[in-house]
């Protein structure tokens, strides 16, 4: 159940990946077999079973609305490839 080349190209575009023609074929095969494996689930009888929203039996992990001081501005900005006026400098996107 390989993916079509069109589907691979679509997913690659969304992920901003440039693929060679050969890679497209490889991934069409590989992605197809992953999906085929996951597709086994559709064979199960899920009649009367509530959909699971999270695999952990944990709910309502909340914190109070209190500002914690201590900005890590310098450390965080030091990771930026390009900086200007204390801001990340990126190619213009319109």
């Amino acid at each position: 159940m390989a993916l079509t080349i069109g589907e691979v190209e679509h997913v690659a575009l969304l992920a901003r990946l440039a693929l060679s023609a050969e890679e497209k074929h490889t991934f069409a095969e590989q992605l197809g077999s992953i999906l085929e494996y996951a597709d086994k689930l559709t064979g199960l009888d899920t009649e009367g079973i509530e959909p699971l929203v999270n695999i952990l039996p944990v709910f309502n992990v909340l914190r109070d609305d209190e500002v914690k001081p201590g900005s890590l501005r310098e450390e965080i900005l030091s990771n930026a490839p390009l900086l200007e006026e204390e801001q990340y400098k990126v190619p213009k996107i319109i």
């Binding site: 909340l62 109070d64 890590l72 501005r73 900005l77």
Partner: peptide
């Protein structure tokens, strides 16, 4: 506020950081 003064590893999208939901927001 001055640019990038109210930031931390969570809201700057650093890998491995975990979000914790604000009760007041809910």
């Amino acid at each position: 506020a001055e640019p990038n003064t109210q930031v931390c590893p969570v809201c700057s999208g650093f890998p491995g950081m975990l979000p914790v939901l604000n009760k007041k927001m809910v």
